[in-house]
C-alpha cells in the first residue's frame, strides 16, 4: 500500500518559518506529551517497561544518547510546525518530557 505522501506542490518561500505541518495547531498539551513519550520510547536505548513518567531524566538514564538529540529536535520541529534554533537553547531543556514541553511548546 502506498504511503500518504503526495506529489509535491509549491508551499512556502525559502527560509520561511511559516508552519506547514498538518499537525500544527491541532494538538493540546496532553497530545504533545503523548507524542513525545511515544517517540522517546521508540528510540530508547534501554528497555522501558510500563509508563514513562514525564519527569524521567531521559539522557541521565541512558534512554536517549546525545546523538539522538538531532533526531528529537527534528521531531519536535514537525510537532511545532516551526524550526528550532538549537543555538538559542540550553542543553537542560532535553532533561525530560516536562522540560521538553515547557521549553518547546508551552505558551
Amino acid at each position: 500500500m502506498r504511503a500518504a505522501w503526495r506529489p509535491p506542490v509549491e508551499t512556502s518561500s525559502p527560509g520561511s518559518t511559516r508552519p506547514t505541518s498538518p499537525r500544527d495547531g491541532n494538538m493540546d498539551e496532553s497530545k504533545i506529551r503523548t507524542e513525545l513519550k511515544k517517540w522517546i520510547v521508540a528510540h530508547s536505548k534501554v528497555p522501558v517497561t510500563g509508563e514513562l513518567p514525564d519527569d524521567t531524566p531521559i539522557l541521565e538514564r541512558g534512554i536517549l544518547s546525545s546523538l539522538d538529540i538531532v533526531e528529537l529536535v527534528l521531531f519536535i520541529e514537525s510537532l511545532r510546525g516551526d524550526e528550532v534554533d538549537t543555538e538559542a537553547i540550553e542543553p537542560a531543556v532535553f532533561t525530560s518530557i516536562d522540560t521538553l514541553y515547557s521549553g518547546f511548546f508551552a505558551p
Binding site: A4, W5, R6, P8, V9, E10, T11, S12, P14, G15, S16, T20, S21, P22, L74, F75, E77, S78, E83
Partner: peptide
Amino acid sequence: PAMYKDAGLENAYE
C-alpha cells in the same frame, strides 16, 4: 526537512 521545505515539497518531516 528544511531543505525539502525550501524546495517546496510538502510534509517535509514525513
